[in-house]
Simulated assay, not measured.
Amino acid sequence: MQIAFSPCPNDTFVFHAWVHGRILEASKLDVIYADIDQTNELALQANAPDILKISYAALPWVLSEYALLPCGGALGRGCGPLVLISDKHDPNKEHSRLTGARVAVPSERSTAYLLFRLWAKAEVPSQIEEIVVMPFDQIMPAVQQGTVDAGLVIHEARFTYPRYGLTQLVDLGEWWEKETALPIPLGAIIARRSLDLAAITRWIRASVTYAWEHPTASQAYVLTHAQEMDSQVAQSHIDLYVNSFTHDLGAEGYAAIKTLLNRAADEGLVPAINPNLLANPS
């Protein structure tokens, strides 16, 4: 069985036990490690993997072939993307700062980008000049150097942006939670509808449980794939993104997903979804 997920600490932490044969009943895995913008594209290909971690923003394009699994992904509170600016270029932190600005984003098919577009529509007085897509690890240096006026950042950038002398303009997660009182849907785990979805769900939950019960077992694996991230940042990443929603989305998780995708569809950012295709397969 082939699976694609990111090398980020939360994903390697969650899937460590399954990848390493600790879930005895589970099928063996052939793993593709790829950043989420790449897995979003992989999911659209004819020979796509059986299971993938993708952005919730990409879900409407693949729901006919793939089912959303109720576990294994990233959804929570206090873990949203940030919009960063550099004080050395302009100490004014008002939202009007983005009028006519060039803003770097990691992907145009990501939850971060959906949240940014929804926030900007409500909060930015006039049009943003240009959206520049670039790898997420290049965004903070670009803001620091003045190549762009602001940057939308995700992942461990929440913990490291002060090293670049940058300032948070807005925490989009905080904005979303105030707007909706719901958690933030970030990364989804999907599997082909032709597979035994109940079994895959059971194996992922067992892998999550194993990770929590043996927190040091995955340490070497996590750091091997953490792209030179130090161990403290990696642990902060895990602590933030692996939570009760990782084990079970529950009613609140599904409500958050539907709210995000319905709002985005209303703005023409994603195709409208069939709510029946979001049903819990477990």
Rank of each mutant, 00 (worst) to 15 (best):
A101V: 02
A122Y: 15
D90A: 14
A199F: 03
F245P: 05
I200C: 05
Q168L: 03
L197S: 07
D35A: 02
W175C: 11
A211H: 10
V233K: 11
D239A: 13
L186H: 02
F116E: 00
V105K: 07
K93A: 12
G21F: 04
I23F: 00
E108P: 04
I189S: 05
Q168W: 01
Y113G: 00
Q138N: 15
F136M: 06
V19N: 00
P271K: 03
R102S: 01
Y66R: 04
I3G: 00
V222I: 08
Q232D: 09
R109W: 02
V103Q: 10
V143C: 05
R77D: 11
Y254G: 11
L166M: 07
E156N: 10
F15A: 00
P185R: 07
Y254I: 15
V105P: 08
E252G: 12
T246Y: 15
S236D: 13
W18Y: 05
I32W: 01
A188G: 08
T160E: 14
D11H: 12
G21M: 09
L75E: 12
S126H: 14
A264G: 01
D11N: 14
W212T: 13
E123C: 09
K28L: 02
A255E: 14
T216Y: 13
A46K: 06
A101P: 10
V153C: 05
N243R: 10
L42R: 01
L172E: 06
P91E: 09
G151S: 03
I257H: 10
A211L: 13
R109G: 03
I273D: 06
A58W: 05
L269P: 01
I238H: 02
P106Q: 08
P281I: 11
L59Y: 10
Y33K: 00
R202L: 09
D50E: 09
M140K: 09
N40L: 03
D37K: 02
E156Y: 01
L195V: 08
P60G: 08
P7A: 11
A198Q: 15
A220E: 10
D30L: 01
L44W: 14
V105Y: 00
A206P: 06
A57W: 00
L260S: 12
L197W: 15
W18H: 05
Q232T: 15
L69N: 07
V270G: 07
Y241W: 04
S207N: 11
N47E: 08
A150L: 05
A211W: 11
G253S: 15
S244T: 14
V170D: 13
N280S: 13
P215L: 12
V105M: 07
D90P: 03
W176P: 15
D30T: 00
L115T: 06
N47G: 11
E179N: 07
R202D: 08
W212Y: 13
L223R: 08
I200F: 09
N47L: 04
R163F: 07
I204R: 03
H247A: 15
G151P: 04
A142Q: 09
R263P: 10
Y210G: 11
G268R: 06
D266M: 02
A57D: 05
